[in-house]
Simulated assay, not measured.
Amino acid sequence: MYTDWSVQATVSWLLSESFGSKNVSIVAEEDIQKLCKADAAGLLATVSNTVNECLAEAPRFGLKGPNISLGTSEVLEAISRCNSTGGPTGRFWTLDPVDGTLGFVRGDQYAVALALIEDGQVVLGVLGCPNYPMRKEWLSYHHRYHRIISKLTPPTSESWDKGCVIYARRGSGEALMQPLPHVNQKLVWPNSVRPVQVSSIDNPSLATFCEPVEKANSSHSFTAGVAHSMGLRKQPLRVYSMVKYAAIARGDAEIFMKFARAGYKEKIWDHAAGVVIIQEAGGVVSDARGRPLDFSKGIYLEGLDRGIIACAGPKLHDKIISAVDASWDSSSL
């Protein structure tokens, strides 16, 4: 999908302008091999046009765009910086340009996820969630349904606003949210930034839990068993992408559980940004044994035990770990 390359090129160019191209190393999913093929001229042109359209908007967000439009060679150069393999030392960024491809295609939830990792530790996380509703009640509805209903009832800015960027720096003790401006709306940055915090709910019967929409790489049945054994009564909130991490950080949900099927390896760009955001918002993230996630082993979360648990606080976290322990031996994962 050309969008992935477009986002990678845009983010890479902006980071390079801020820090210098020699200082920017990015772990990301897409490389330039396909774009360099002889029959990819049309695709490369589409990517380049999209990148230039995005960068033309940079001043609205307090950033400086290019003086003239980028050529295809400059776009390829920006994408080529996305070839880091990570590791335990040094500084690199990790980027998921379109996390939740199906959500993006369907007009539902998706995220652009960027994190900075230094010596194996995530030190900065940014989640751009363009379709995230400001009213959490809408999170469980499909975006197309939201559009239909909004046309049938009088819209108010508070009711129908959507889109935000959530970010956090390790050790800051806070996670912050910036609502996205509507088209033609002047952005007020950082005056409209506000802190977000995890929910105070620690009673499982009142908690909302998230799980992936897709069943291909996660076990809904095991998650349902854990949920039942620990007393979760609400239906799971199935949301595409790292928006699940954003929902917990904002206090719109309390628990995210993912138990991968045998053979599936989690990639660092699918979790890094969300982990530090939840932690700085007051939550807890670990593998399903209770250990911290390890981002120092390359592009995969090597050594991940059983699955991933993210939640609003230590009481819920301990209950989930106990429920997983009690159920694991009888599972087929």
Rank of each mutant, 00 (worst) to 15 (best):
V123A: 01
S157T: 14
H142D: 11
M134I: 12
T156W: 08
V196W: 10
M134K: 13
P97N: 09
P130M: 05
V75M: 00
V165M: 14
V105I: 08
K186V: 11
T156E: 07
S200N: 14
S80V: 06
T153F: 15
P195F: 06
W93Y: 15
F92G: 05
A168D: 05
T89F: 04
I149C: 08
L114C: 06
A175W: 09
L187C: 08
D161K: 14
A111K: 03
V112F: 00
P88C: 10
I68Q: 04
E77V: 11
G107Q: 02
G163D: 01
Y110N: 09
R135M: 12
L176M: 12
G125Q: 07
Y110D: 04
S200V: 08
T85K: 12
P181I: 04
R91G: 00
I201D: 01
Y167C: 04
P195A: 14
S140Y: 01
R144H: 11
W93K: 00
F92Q: 10
L180V: 01
V122G: 00
P97H: 09
E158I: 12
P195R: 13
L187M: 04
I68S: 07
S199D: 02
M177V: 15
V188S: 10
T85D: 04
K162R: 10
P97E: 05
G87Q: 10
S192P: 00
L187H: 03
V75S: 04
K136T: 03
L127T: 10
I79R: 07
T72S: 15
H142F: 11
S157C: 09
G173M: 08
V123R: 03
D108A: 03
E137P: 05
V193F: 09
L139S: 04
N191A: 11
E158D: 13
T72W: 01
I149Y: 08
D202S: 14
